[in-house]
Amino acid sequence: MAELKTAAPLMEARNLTKIFNVSRGMLHAVDGVDFKIYPGQTLGVVGESGCGKSTLGNTILRLTEPTSGEMYFEGKEYSKVGKREMREMRKDMQMIFQDPYSSIDPRMCVADIIAEYMIINRTYKTKREIYAQVEKLMDTVGLAKRLAEAYPHELDGGRRQRIGVARALSLNPKFIVCDEPVSALDVSIQAQILNLLMDLQDEYKLTYLFITHNLSVVKQISSDIMVMYLGKCVERATSDELFANPRHPYTKALLSAIPVPDISMRNKEIHLIQGEVTSPINPKPGCRFAARCPMARPECSQESPHLREVSPNHFVACHLEE
């Protein structure tokens, strides 16, 4: 891992911001987020609903246009390149979606769904080559060949998600945004898909941005983790460091809120945080977490804390760390 980090980052975002103009004001979905992802690594993005993690994923692929900030892919700034060029770049950057029920067109059969990206991008000259490739992809993700002519509704969630994975792989991307790819699946199927994603990463040297609300999943798959709260990155560290040594009060609360399948932990003290996520529309100045933070101090609601490195590769945005 240490060796890889000396290489240039595959994906980098600097001060990435996405503000939606909604009827009640300005919705700060992503607010000044920075990160780097090195080739072959996985950055896990964790947060509760409304923290902007899905918007972040969409913005990275420019399915939503960023309001400001810079994005680099293999060193190339692409936040403002034209539609055509972006289409070309998207071949290297793909996405796996959350809901295996709505992310594939119910009117198309499995083979056509997987073939679609290759047809659009004219990856191969003939249909025969494309469909031969479809068969290979189905094999890679563990879908039986006989399912090629099946329609999505005939398949269960796990198989549908495999279709989504095969489609994302079809253009040989280097980078994949996984937007809650296992949240809609049962535990036993969830583990199958996670294993598949990890195997594919090893085999094709893929780089992932893995978005999820499930902390145990993110620990399993990520090398680095970024915790988001209301559009801001509150803490970023390597996976092991974050779980062993969480610094931000929100991260601590998040970790202790996970119900552990172990009854000896039943009566452990949990750091319950009060209240709920406040609205990301016209946020007040200061730390976004201040209203719920058990350790908030006066300055927390006045000045926004900056992300600073508290130990090597461990970044926290909290006034308590200053």
Partner: peptide
Amino acid sequence: EQEYIKAAKAGGSSDLRIIFRHAVPN
């Protein structure tokens, strides 16, 4: 609003293709 429309965009589909290939059949 369905995700497969977003998926088609991520794969580089043009608007026209999305309309005829996905919106109209559905």
